[in-house]
Every structure is written in structure tokens, then in C-alpha cells.
Amino acid sequence: MDNGRLRTATTHDGVELLNLWALLFDEDNAAREDPWRSHAAEWFGRSVDDPSSVRFPVIEVGDAIVATAIGTLELGVPNPQCAKGRTVRLANVITLPGHRGRGYGTRLVLDVLDWARSIDADRVDLSATPEGRRLYEKLGFTTTSAPRMKLAL
């Protein structure tokens, strides 16, 4: 069994990553004309080579990416919970169904945590699905009292 190779995504990985991200939204990969895809592809192209503000770890088995995560640096107002105002947002953690249970998610999250420390972030925030909670709690994440709210524009 291939343990998978952890590496940082490159510009050449954009299409594969878009297809993985689509799975997060239970979206049929055949719907390749969705507007979010072109925006995500453009954002990825601009961001992939900026390790000071974005981290794109992937797990590769053979020649295919089977798992990925994203860490993005968010700069905000320093406050008691975030003294420097540097928060990393962990998002889009996904492993293809046939490759789950091999520790890939843990390896990806640990990679983003290492990166967050290397760029002097204060904390890492995420929104966990019920399926992901156990992984994040095992790594020391805690539930906060502030619920997330959003407004789509």
C-alpha cells in the first residue's frame, strides 16, 4: 500500500484541486461551468506561489492527488485572543473516499499547523463538519462559544 507523498501543490495541480474542492460541496464534477470554479482557478493561480500567505499541501498516491487542505493567512486587528492579529484559516480538508482512514487528513492539518507557526500566526481557525470534529479535537482544536454567521452578497 502506498502511504502517499506529502508535497506542496504547484500551478500544474489546479484542475485536480478544483475537482477535489467540488467534492466538498457535493457537486457533480460534470458541472465544470459553475462560476465559482473560474474564480477559484484564478485565485489559486494568483496564490499558489505565495507561501507567506497561503499553504496548499497535497497527498499524492502514484500520479494522483488524493487529499488536500488549504491554509490562508488572515490579517486582522490584534486582540486578546489574537495578539498579533495573524490568524490562519484552515479549509477544504478533503480525502477521496477510497483513500480515507490512512491518516492523510492528519498529515495535511499538521502540515498547515507547521506552516502557521513558521509565518508567526497566533492561531488557526476552522469550521468543522461532524465527520471532521474528531480529527481536529485529537489535534487540540476546541469549540468556541462564538457561532459563525454569514451573509451571502
Rank of each mutant, 00 (worst) to 15 (best):
W43V: 14
W43N: 14
R46D: 13
V48K: 06
D49A: 15
D50Y: 07
P51T: 15
S53T: 14
R55P: 05
F56T: 02
I59C: 13
E60N: 09
V61D: 14
G62R: 09
D63N: 14
A64V: 11
A64F: 00
A67W: 01
A69E: 06
I70E: 00
L73K: 01
L75A: 11
L75D: 06
P80I: 11
P80T: 05
P80D: 08
A83Q: 02
R86N: 04
R89D: 10
A91I: 02
A91T: 01
V93M: 00
V93R: 00
V93T: 03
T95W: 02
L96M: 00
P97D: 09
P97L: 13
H99G: 04
R100A: 09
R102L: 13
R102H: 14
T106D: 08
T106W: 07
R107A: 12
V109A: 11
L110F: 09
D111F: 02
V112P: 01
V112A: 03
L113R: 12
L113V: 13
L113Y: 03
D114G: 13
A116G: 10
S118W: 05
I119W: 01
D120T: 10
R123Y: 11
T129N: 11
P130I: 09
E131N: 14
G132P: 00
R134D: 10
